[in-house]
Every structure is written in structure tokens, then in C-alpha cells.
């Protein structure tokens, strides 16, 4: 069963269609990456998922029930640009945001203390936010996002500005939240992090989903179509081969793109039959970065690409 389902969301601002019929679903127990360039429609989608904007049409369902006004208490949101009241102390900030989520009891204070200790901020609890370093402010912001124990967490570029140690602490916490069964949506334009952390992704471009599904499948699917070959012998005959889409021949190194991943074995066979000496044959893993460039890099191309590719 899917933890969160987004169905046919549309939102227009005047003539501009910011989000145009977006659908995707987030499986239980996974971290979901929402990927796209700036202005692609990520923020508008997220705002509709949090009930800040009402969609023109479409629906968002969390574990079977459609989101409504009471949903706000179940969501934790870490925006891309950090937003804290500079003059408030760390402690007051945390309690204020928790109270806004309807949590004002004693438990929340204990939990806030726990988190502060985890992030080595316990001794700064009475410090004003403006006196903290950027990294520490970010940690406070993250604690404020998850302190009220939300079911559904949206993290917009959570790692920007963190040093490697804090990145690790944060990563561990995110993974533990995942194990605790939270639905985590991770929005980014940095493919590296998405690749490392996400199980599933949806790629948004110009208000539409151009790719969605399990990251593993996407990568292997795109990757298997790309084969790098180190060889001796002339492979120019491949250009006439029906299942070869493109050959970049550099003499003893070639990059070959095939029409169908299942044709890799057939390609290997053909090469052997033509007495090509194969030193390395790598149906390699393509990076998410390359996939993204391929799909969204050229606007003219993608505009013709109307059908979303579902894997």
C-alpha cells in the first residue's frame, strides 16, 4: 500500500500553469525524492501537499484519508531557506513551533532536550538564534521540523550548509525516522543526495512529472541502455545494427547506446561473432544526474516528450 498518494494535482496562477496534472505515490517505509530545477513546480506541489494552497483539482491522500485542515499537525516541513525568529532563544523557538502543532505538554520539553543533546546544542538552549552559527541554526530548524513527531516530513535541501559531521548526524536521524515508519519527502535539485538517500523519486519539469518510480529501477533501466566498451578491432558495423541507437567510437574505447536493455547480451554476442577482442564490457549504472540532464536538460526535447515515463 502507498503511504501517500498524489493524484492529478493541478494549480494555475492566472495564465501560468504551475502544476499541471501531477500524480505520484510514495510507498511505505521509503524516502521519496522530489527532483526538479528551480521553478519546476516543486514548491507549489509541496504547498498543496501541506494544504497551504488548495489545488484547482486533484487530491492528496495520506494513508487512505484525504488531507484537510487537521492535517497540518501531522506534517513537519523544513523549507529550503531557513526561517527562524532571530531574537528568540533556541528553547523558545522549539516550544513555539511545537505549540503551533498542538503540542505543549511536558513530554515535548523532554523530547526537545533529547534532540538538543543529539545535535550537541543542549548548552545553547538559552542562546538567541541570531548568535548561533549557520550550521547550528539549521540544526535548530531541523529539530523544530520533527519535534512534534509528524507522520509526514518534507525536507527541502536539508543538508545545505552542514559540515560532514553534522551531515552524518542528520542522515542518521532521517534514516531512523524512516525506520519509525515516517513518510519522508526529500525535495532537492542536488542529484547526489537524492541518489544516496532516496528509494523512490519523481522528477518534475515545467509543472509535469517526467519520470517517477523506484530509483534502483530507473537507474538500472537507463544504465543498461548505456554500455561502455574497451576493445580491439573495428566496430563500425554496429552502426547498421537494428538495436544500436548510437555509437560514440573513440578507437579502442566506445560508448554504445542500445534501444532496449535486454539487448545487451545480443550486443556482446554480435561483437564476439565479429572477432572483436573485448577487454571490458560494462552495462554501467548511469547517475541520476545524467538521467536528469537527459530528460530535462534540453527544453525543446522535453516539450515534445508529452508522456510521463513510468517505470
Amino acid at each position: 500500500m502507498h503511504a501517500l498518494e498524489v493524484r492529478n494535482l493541478c494549480k494555475a496562477f492566472g495564465a501560468l500553469k504551475a502544476v499541471d496534472d501531477i500524480s505520484f505515490s510514495v510507498p511505505e517505509g521509503s524516502i521519496f525524492g522530489l527532483i526538479g530545477r528551480n521553478g519546476a513546480g516543486k514548491t507549489t506541489t509541496i504547498r498543496m501537499m501541506m494544504n497551504i494552497y488548495l489545488p484547482d483539482s486533484g487530491s492528496v491522500t495520506l494513508r487512505g484519508s484525504e488531507i484537510g485542515p487537521d492535517f497540518k499537525d501531522k506534517v513537519g516541513y523544513l523549507p529550503e531557506e531557513r526561517g527562524l525568529y532571530k531574537k528568540m532563544t533556541v528553547w523558545d523557538t522549539l516550544l513555539f513551533f511545537a505549540e503551533l502543532k498542538g503540542k505543549a505538554d511536558k513530554d515535548i520539553k523532554n523530547k526537545a532536550m533529547e534532540y538538543l543533546e543529539k545535535f550537541q546544542l543542549a548548552n545553547r538552549r538559552n542562546t538567541k538564534v541570531e548568535e548561533l552559527s549557520k550550521g547550528n541554526q539549521q540544526k535548530v530548524q531541523f529539530i523544530a521540523t520533527v519535534l512534534h513527531d509528524p507522520e509526514f516530513i518534507i525536507l527541502d535541501e536539508p543538508f545545505s550548509g552542514l559540515d560532514p559531521i553534522n551531515t552524518n548526524i542528520l542522515k542518521e536521524i532521517i534514516l531512523s525516522l524512516k525506520r519509525a515508519g515516517k513518510v519522508i519527502i526529500f525535495s532537492t535539485h542536488l542529484m547526489d543526495f537524492a541518489e544516496k538517500l532516496c528509494d523512490h523519486i519523481a522528477m518534475i519539469h515545467q509543472g509535469k512529472i517526467i519520470l517517477s518510480g523506484s530509483l534502483k529501477e530507473i537507474k538500472s533501466n537507463y544504465g543498461q541502455k548505456n554500455i561502455s566498451l574497451v576493445h580491439d578491432g573495428d566496430i563500425s558495423f554496429l552502426k547498421n545494427d537494428p538495436f544500436v541507437e548510437k555509437v560514440d567510437d573513440f578507437g579502442n574505447y566506445s560508448g554504445i547506446k542500445i534501444t532496449d536493455p535486454s539487448k545487451a547480451q545480443a550486443l556482446l554476442k554480435t561483437l564476439i561473432e565479429h572477432n572483436i577482442i573485448i577487454k571490458k564490457f560494462d552495462a554501467n549504472d548511469i547517475s541520476l544526474h545524467d538521467v536528469f540532464i537527459e530528460l530535462a536538460g534540453n527544453d525543446d526535447e522535453t516539450e515534445n516528450n508529452n508522456g510521463a515515463l513510468n517505470v
Partner: peptide, 16 residues
């Protein structure tokens, strides 16, 4: 200030 700091985004994820 709330608008430029983007505090408002967090506020609106909690309150209408």
C-alpha cells in the same frame, strides 16, 4: 521579515 526569512512557510505548514 517573516516573508523574507521564509518563517511564514513554516508557520503556514502549521496554521492557516
Amino acid at each position: 521579515q517573516e516573508k523574507t526569512n521564509r518563517i511564514v512557510e513554516i508557520l503556514l505548514s502549521s496554521i492557516n
